[in-house]
């Protein structure tokens, strides 16, 4: 019983990380129709840049080291995303395949430059004392506090996204843009600027995932491919451009991965893809996607 509960909790904490990363991917795709193949690269950039701020501060014993790393990593990813949209993708709006190819090219260059600058050694953040150590969870016993915090952050991200999308003017513009870009522009909204804002927000979420992920487990080269794949699968399963769908997809994939690894370790990947194929066969637009 203990084991089952631990596996489920592991699945949920993993799902929390997947949700944070994939929600950014889904957001960018929802409004811009851009498949951001550099999403994994943005995850990795934020992790490494954040770490290079975190490390010297941590060595000096500053209590705010982790928060500074988090802030800088997320800000860097956001700025990077805004630049990508402004300089490269903005002027080829509507050419979806070409945009996907551009982001693939970017991800190759970014991953290679990260390897050049930071080398192949894995990095891992140490969470601040307040959220370090373990917490007693009823029915399980001691469980890493940070992983529980991870769930909290994911819930906050989900709620925040929902509030931004449904309760603010920006959200209103974003939703209007999903339905009809041209009409939105005709209403006097600066659609390209909304695009930059959305891309930047999506990249910031990838960055948030990067720092959080690098705190929960070591960050190493190759993380970009892993998290790009996760984002793809979660969004395909959950439905394109739907926050709730992304959450559902993340929980499903996170649980499937943990349960699969516990029950049939070397075949666990198959379970994830059986889910994906089943969803595609029954609902090509994803579980909660709009047709």
């Amino acid at each position: 019983m203990d084991l089952a509960a631990t596996i489920v909790l592991n699945g949920l904490t993993l799902a929390a990380l997947y949700f944070i990363v994939a929600s950014g991917f889904s957001l960018i795709f929802g409004l811009m129709r851009v498949v951001n193949m550099a999403h994994g690269a943005m995850y990795m950039v934020a992790g490494y840049v954040g770490y290079s701020v975190f490390e010297p501060l941590y060595d000096r014993g500053a209590w705010y080291a982790w928060y500074a790393g988090l802030g800088v990593g997320v800000a860097f990813a956001a700025a990077f995303g805004a630049l990508v949209q402004k300089l490269l993708l903005g002027w080829m709006q509507g050419q979806e395949l070409r945009q996907a190819l551009v982001t693939i090219g970017l991800s190759i260059i970014v991953a290679d430059q990260l390897l050049a600058v930071y080398g192949g050694t894995p990095r891992q953040f140490f969470a601040p004392d307040a959220i370090f150590g373990s917490t007693q969870v009823p029915g399980i016993g001691g469980y890493p506090t940070f992983r529980l915090v991870q769930i909290g952050i994911a819930v906050a991200v989900g709620l925040g996204l929902w509030l931004v999308l449904n309760r603010t003017k920006l959200g209103m513009m974003i939703r209007a843009g999903v339905d009809d870009r041209q009409m939105l522009g005709a209403c006097g909204v600066n659609v390209p600027l909304v695009g930059v804002a959305v891309f930047s927000l999506g990249a910031a979420l990838a960055g948030l995932g990067g720092v959080i992920g690098a705190t929960a487990q070591p960050l190493a080269q190759g993380a970009d491919g892993r998290f790009l794949l996760i984002s793809l699968v979660v969004v395909i399963v959950g439905g394109m451009g739907s926050v709730t769908g992304t959450a559902l997809g993340a929980v499903l994939i996170g649980l499937a991965e943990q349960i699969g690894q516990a029950m049939f370790p070397t075949y666990s990947v198959i379970l994830t893809f059986v889910i994906m194929v089943a969803v595609l066969a029954l609902r090509p637009q994803g579980m909660l996607g709009r047709a």
């Binding site: 498949v35 794949l229 969004v235 990947v269 198959i270 893809f273 595609l280 090509p284």
Partner: peptide, 25 residues
């Protein structure tokens, strides 16, 4: 049942899935 970038995403996901399966098995 998919086209364009959806097809791109799904084929990439399938390719990476087989890769990770092969790598861990």
């Amino acid at each position: 049942r998919t086209r364009d970038i959806y097809l791109l995403m799904i084929t990439l996901a399938l390719a990476m899935g087989v890769f990770r399966f092969v790598e861990t098995n």
